[in-house]
């Protein structure tokens, strides 16, 4: 509400988007059904602003919409040729920084990175692949860590610390050498207290944290992004109250 008692709103690509006090631009946009590409944003967690895929333009300035507080009367641009190219490049950089082999990945069809890339009409990486050496951690009897796919969104770090209260994950290194690690002296997942019911198991937007032995159980055609492109599912990412891990996960 504004001081005059009207619902506060901003303009997003010419459309009026109402918002609640304290909401960021992406939160308000998604709640109203307007899609802005995003990867490290999660509707149950505080915005993080690390991947920059949700970049928009306000007053000629580019800014991450997940950390930008919505303001009444603000004019936001998320769709322009220049922004689209920027979104594409940001996603392409994520592809070449890791090792992403969609054809044999069990998250194909449920992967947000893949879905965002399809939505942005990215047909190739265009940049040189870095081919980092990231061995998988298969030490845990029920959980596989496929580090090759990590995009450093830190959602697992946050979920494990803030919801599960376990601190299983952390980021280590700086710049291009930054990488996900397991908080155990041995560095092995088997030596942590992670459980398949943890929130950290649910939040990975790609295919790093996987329940063992269940890959490909969902047939093609029934996976999340088989049904509709990610841009048509904006409301599913509208802000919601945080939940704990999946208690039904067996």
């Amino acid at each position: 509400m504004t001081a005059e008692g009207k619902t506060a709103s901003f303009q997003l690509d010419g459309a009026t988007v109402p918002f609640e006090p304290g909401q960021t631009v992406i939160q308000a946009a998604l709640a109203a059904g307007h899609y802005i590409p995003h990867l490290c944003y999660h509707p149950e967690f505080k915005p993080h602003g690390s991947c920059r895929v949700c970049t928009v333009e306000v007053d000629g300035r580019t800014v991450a919409s997940c950390t930008l507080q919505a303001q009444d009367g603000m004019e936001v641009l998320s769709q322009s040729d220049r922004l689209r190219k920027e979104h594409q490049t940001l996603v392409q950089m994520l592809f070449v920084e890791g090792n992403h082999f969609c054809p044999s990945c069990e998250q194909s069809g449920n992967c947000r990175l893949q879905a965002v890339a399809y939505d942005l009409d990215i047909m190739s990486a265009e940049l040189d692949h870095l081919f980092p050496n990231r061995p998988v951690d298969a030490s845990h009897p029920e959980i596989l860590l496929e580090f090759n796919r990590c995009i450093l969104c830190e959602l697992c770090v946050r979920a494990s610390a803030e919801v599960d209260g376990k601190n299983v994950f952390a980021l280590s290194g700086r710049g291009i050498t930054k990488h996900l690690i397991v908080n155990a002296e041995s560095g092995r997942l088997a030596d942590t207290d992670i459980a398949v019911t943890d929130k950290a198991m649910e939040v990975c937007p790609v295919g790093v944290i996987l329940r063992k032995g269940v890959g490909f159980r969902v047939p093609i055609g029934e996976r999340r992004f088989d049904r509709q492109p990610i841009s048509a599912q904006a409301r599913e990412d509208a802000p919601r109250r945080p939940t704990t891990g999946n208690e039904d996960s067996t």
Binding site: P103, S104, E106, P135, L144, L210, K212
Partner: peptide
């Protein structure tokens, strides 16, 4: 080598 077993039927068909 090194890949999880449940991935193999999808990978090797390539």
């Amino acid at each position: 080598q090194g890949r999880p077993y449940w991935e193999i039927p999808v990978m090797v068909q390539r």
